[in-house]
Nucleic acid binder design. Structure first.
Lengths: 143, 143
DNA sequence: ATTCGTGCAAACCGTTTGCAAGGGA
DNA sequence: TCCCTTGCAAACGGTTTGCACGAAT
């Protein structure tokens, strides 16, 4: 399903700004900070305001088209991947990449369903994997 | 090992402020925001400055006595637990609790050591478990 | 005496808000 | 047309920085 359709299904008007912001998130597996997102989007839409971008992001989160990612920076990042997955964090948190692994999903899911953490009802989980990339291809992503 | 000793081993001078900040983090498994931490610490040290607290926290991180926790809030949280563990996030992120589970550690560790993510060298991992508490004991923690 | 740590206050920067003008259905 | 969305700019709040004073060795 494409971006326009997702926006429409969510009951949102299709605007160039929303297409740009949403499209930008969808097309990169490295999850930019809002700051970087703004830079990217302004290549096509030089006059887009930061308020607009934050507004769009919040709406997309509310409509569950994207999701906030935890970081230990003072900046939020967003993830437009719909399929369940995990994240690879580089040590300096300069970027966060998706990691898809259905076997891992199931492994953890099965385990957690058995342990039954006392007094805690699990709704979801996500693995943070810390480390670093070691090939040149990933060292510098054009985002 | 107690707090004083850890500070000393790290080559840090022992000051009332550092004891208060570090001690406060150690004694609560719920990881407060800095804002809350300041409130707590000021009960004993009304004149401690925010700069001092941020400064202390940064030093403790650098000395690896505490660790930053990822959140999707616009506020950093810290964790003084030295033993490897995971985190329980409540849906509104109002608090983050520790979750210790050696079997889970090993399960994931074994799995990850086999999958060998291409071009990525893993140094650590941490599971984020989202959900909510459902007993009164945990609903309101006195922190 | 020198170095390190603290308190204070201003600066910084990511994010939020308010409002008038503009654009999609 | 009507309401939703945008651009702009000011406000906000968590964090950082600079600096002079104070404490420890």
């Amino acid at each position: 399903m494409n971006i326009r359709q997702k926006l429409k299904d969510a009951g949102l008007k299709i605007t160039p700004q929303r297409l740009a912001v949403f499209g930008n998130l969808v097309n990169y597996t490295e999850h930019p900070t809002v700051d970087k997102l703004i830079t990217n989007v302004r290549k096509e839409h030089p006059n887009i305001g930061v308020g607009t971008i934050y507004n769009i992001l919040e709406i997309l989160v509310k409509k569950r088209l994207i999701v906030k990612i935890s970081t230990d920076e003072n900046a939020v990042r967003y993830d437009a991947s719909t399929e369940k997955h995990h994240h690879l964090y580089t040590l300096d948190s300069a970027k966060i990449e998706d990691y898809f692994d259905k076997k891992l999903n199931k492994l953890i899911e099965d385990y957690l369903s058995n342990v039954k953490i006392p007094n805690f009802k699990i709704s979801d989980f996500r693995l943070q994997i810390f480390g670093k990339f070691n090939n040149s291809k990933n060292k510098e992503n054009p985002v």
